[in-house]
Design a binder for these strands. Structure first.
Ligand SMILES: [Zn+2]
Ligand SMILES: [Zn+2]
Ligand SMILES: [Zn+2]
Ligand SMILES: [Zn+2]
Lengths: 151, 151
DNA sequence: AACTATTATGTTATATTATAACATTCATTT
DNA sequence: AAATGAATGTTATAATATAACATAATAGTT
């Protein structure tokens, strides 16, 4: 694990941003959801659901799988975190409210995950889908490899 | 489920092709592996591991999770099937031995999965990764939406 | 053929990931 | 305060996947 690239935004800033977005949407960033989001953001790489659960249990022994999965669902639904399908893991979103069609660069060495957006990628995917007469809805794009710091 | 697009190649042809590739590589397409591959190819959409297990049990009551997961591992390793990460499911490869950096168009209506290759997509992904100084190794690209037949 | 090494399969057990279903609590509105 | 709906608590279980060790089949080697 090398230097921290993902923490351009501090956890506090990210929480405030999330709070604002929730207010706009009329949904609630409850204490529990804040806690889960914080635990995810604290991690520079990805986090597994049951690791989160164990973290939660440190403060509240009664935490159980639904406790964490419900928060994860909420946080995903509103774009504060993303699920990495190829790892069954979760990462904080580096830019909620802005993003659309992001993709992930996953370093298998340091486990860091870089969230990226690219209009070029988006266009190519849309046009390729179009050639297949396919109307895309949701794109899962996860690229595993070696990051700069680890090469 | 609409017309069958994936069966441009018959199951028999696919099995023969797999056999040839295995011979070239000096690995064995055992009865069990053939059986599992056949079960996957019979399905036009995707298949779940435990559904496969149930299918296997019809002929051999002693089949157990490792029975199917080992075969799946073998078939994936040699490119005869692919895992769809966003579904925890498996599909037959429409063109083993040729492909590299394929992606999948997953219709959420008819559950059909179209495997595609595109040099354009590949190039864009490589170059975008490059801009991030990232050396890609393995790409997971799964596009969910509505296929032509279902739109 | 007997021996050996390797690969594949069988078997038992368990780990990991995720959801269903119902009860209770909390916040908001009336 | 009562009613409503949202969130959380709780119990149970479903779904996905692997570890570890035992046995069997296969392919070379003597
Ligand atoms: Zn994001
Ligand atoms: Zn790295
Ligand atoms: Zn393929
Ligand atoms: Zn369809």
């Amino acid at each position: 694990m090398s230097t921290c690239k993902n923490h351009k935004i501090s956890i506090d800033e990210a929480l405030k941003k999330a709070e604002i977005i929730c207010n706009k949407k009329g949904v609630k960033l409850t204490k529990l959801r804040q806690k889960v989001l914080t635990l995810i953001l604290k991690n520079h790489g990805y986090v597994k659901a049951y690791d989160l659960l164990n973290d939660l249990k440190k403060n509240d022994a009664s935490a159980k799988p639904p406790t964490v999965y419900r928060s994860l669902d909420f946080l995903m639904e509103h774009g504060f975190i993303h699920k990495i399908q190829s790892l069954n893991a979760f990462v904080g979103c580096s830019h909620p409210d802005e993003h659309e069609d992001c993709y992930f660069l996953i370093c298998k060495e340091c486990k860091n995950i870089e969230e990226c957006c690219s209009n070029t990628v988006k266009k190519v995917l849309t046009s390729t889908s179009g050639k297949n007469n396919f109307s895309p809805n949701q794109v899962t794009l996860e690229i595993t490899g070696i990051c700069q710091d680890c090469s």
